[in-house]
Amino acid sequence: MTHEEAQELIPAYALDALDPDEMRTAEAHFSVCEECRRELASLREATALLVEGAPRSAPPAALRDRVLGAAQPARRLAARPRPWPWAWTGWAAAALAVVVLGSVSLSLERRVAAMRGEAAAEARLLSLLASPSAETVELAGTTAGSARLVFAPGRAGGVLVVSGLPDPGGRSIYQLWLISRARPESAGVFRPSGGTATLVPVDANVSRYRAVAISVEPGPAGSPQPTTKPLLAGAVAPGG
């Protein structure tokens, strides 16, 4: 979808009047376009006026207690992205060595071998990623460095390969997002390792999403939803 096409959809999006398909396509564009997000914010101020036209009815007093009773800190924390699954670094690195880079430097190979576990599950994931049907999403953007997400269509599991990204600075980290509907879903956080490629295991089924994006978020756990503009983003090929 071009920027102009997405722009046309903003008013209907602000009114929740798009079909689900259009909505997803629009969101994939909004997630990487600040101009469209600003226009949406501005139109939402207008739709917020319309709420005054709804006949007023008072919620029952007990509802307040129910809402506050349900809003426990634990519930909110549970919705946060899981911390980086360090235990997976082994298979991810191994997968990269086989699938992504093709030829790897000797030093990286040694590092990979050192980290690599022998569990059967790792081997299964490795072969899955090595399958000829594996697809790649190239992420593009305004920052230095590159990122690509490798996954097997229709199945869970993939690896994000990042190289040359600058240090996010301070306590910040990078966070990977998968986008299909109203809210991007976190697919993990990472810090680039200086010099070599950084590997981020992704356990979602990537082909169920429309787009992927990376933003800088407060560390160490990242954010429940993106709080900064995505630096890199890419579309998942339809049917891929």
């Binding site: 949406l40 914010a41 909110r76 809210r183 954010s223 429940p224 939803q225 709080t227």
Partner: peptide, 11 residues
Amino acid sequence: RDAAAYDPQRG
């Protein structure tokens, strides 16, 4: 759940 992600620039 999502208040942390609220961005004033988005309205």
